[in-house]
């Protein structure tokens, strides 16, 4: 069964480049990737039980909701608290990473990213 990865980022360019990056994982049937451009919409769908994931990849700086706040909410939710979250952001300061770590995110990939790194991150998190 392909694992379901949700990617949320306010930039369509990033959503498209990420989809190109994981093409091999998708065509080999290892993952399905669903993208959201609005984190608030994603949160609502998750909380209402109409959306689910094996791994969430989230940007931080998004206009409607900050990715770390999104992660905090999901980590406090029984249904999602044990599911891995990878932060994909231009933020690279130790401070921000410490915040992410405290919230309980699994990993951190700094943008701009290469196809190899994103594939590697997903493979490692999902044990592919």
């Amino acid at each position: 069964m392909a694992k379901k990865v949700i990617l949320v980022d306010d930039s369509k360019t990033i959503l498209a480049t990420a989809q190109m990056a994981v093409e091999d994982l998708v065509s080999n049937g290892l993952i399905d990737m669903v993208t959201y451009i609005n984190p608030a919409e994603l949160l609502e769908a998750l909380e209402n039980g109409i959306e689910d994931y094996d791994m969430l990849i989230s940007d931080i700086n998004m206009p409607q909701l900050n990715g770390l706040d999104l992660a905090t909410k999901l980590k406090a939710n029984e249904a999602f608290k044990n599911k891995p979250i990878l932060i994909l952001t231009t933020e690279s300061s130790a401070d921000m990473k410490a915040k992410g770590k405290a919230i309980g995110v699994t990993g951190w990939l700094v943008k701009p990213f290469s196809n190899e790194k994103l594939t590697k991150a997903i493979s490692m998190v999902l044990g592919l």
């Binding site: 231009t90 951190w108 290469s114």
Partner: peptide, 10 residues
């Protein structure tokens, strides 16, 4: 890519 592309697990 020279900048970014830095992966870390906690």
């Amino acid at each position: 890519i020279e900048e970014g592309d830095d992966l870390e697990f906690f």
